[in-house]
Design a protein around this nucleic acid. Structure first.
Lengths: 79, 79, 79, 79
DNA sequence: CTGCCATTTTACCGGC
DNA sequence: GCCGGTAAAATGGCAG
């Protein structure tokens, strides 16, 4: 049976796709690290920057959540 | 040497403390589940409730983050 | 109509109950974190401790499951 | 003083660069999630796949470390 | 090197 | 009874 072989090939394909994506993530993480380093070099406080970014992300999530809740209620009410 | 015995006793003590706390958490989680079930019995949409609770938690986090940032800046400026 | 108001009050009540329980959970989680920290301070390996706790929880499950099976058999047999 | 303004602009620029990179990471993470979902749809065990990928990453690290060691030796020896 | 924070992984819960 | 998504635990990594 070549079925196992086919499955193995598929599996390897999936794994390699994930690994490729992981590499891309690592690259971007390195870029981000560089940005922080550069900012630090310009005298900015990295910890504070992180806090600001986190806060802005939370705000975004807030907005998305609020829309979701409104949507949920809309559906619950019938329109 | 009784050192090993002492260490083993300490370890067991720590582990039992954690396990006790885990049980407490499980109990409260069960309580929470009940509250959701009761609310559902009163016709409320559990998913929407979760969304609301999540949103309110995010708002709290927002406030905490803002204070953290302000604090960080305060320290940076010197008071 | 005061019906909506009543429903809103009920909803708020349920949500506050859940939030209270969430806070309790957070508190206990913080306590547990402290216990791990204290154990670490006494030279124990936290990761290993977690593993042990997990295993013991599994054993408990097994035991409970076995008891359940025994119980089922007992009922099936008549006592 | 326009210095503060310049600093603020710089800060904003750094933050936006980081946020842009964060978005890219999120996108790729979503892609990866899709790959896992697709693999699961083909009958593969996602948890096992993760384990394999982790192992392969470790192997890579080992290899890189060994190459580094070899490199160090090469330099130490003169070529 | 120690503690914090991001990320990843696991476990749970409601819905179909 | 699984499946998708959401919360929690745990691991790894980085700054201080």
């Amino acid at each position: 049976m070549t079925t196992y072989q086919i499955a193995a090939d598929q599996l390897q394909s999936f794994i390699e796709r994930v690994e490729r994506l992981n590499e891309e993530i690592s690259t971007i993480q390195a870029d981000r690290k560089e940005v922080f380093a550069e900012a630090k070099g310009h005298g900015f406080d990295v910890k504070a920057m992180r806090a600001i970014i986190r806060l802005r992300a939370l705000d975004d999530m807030d907005r998305q959540e609020q829309e979701l809740i409104l949507d949920t209620y809309r559906r619950a009410v019938g329109v």
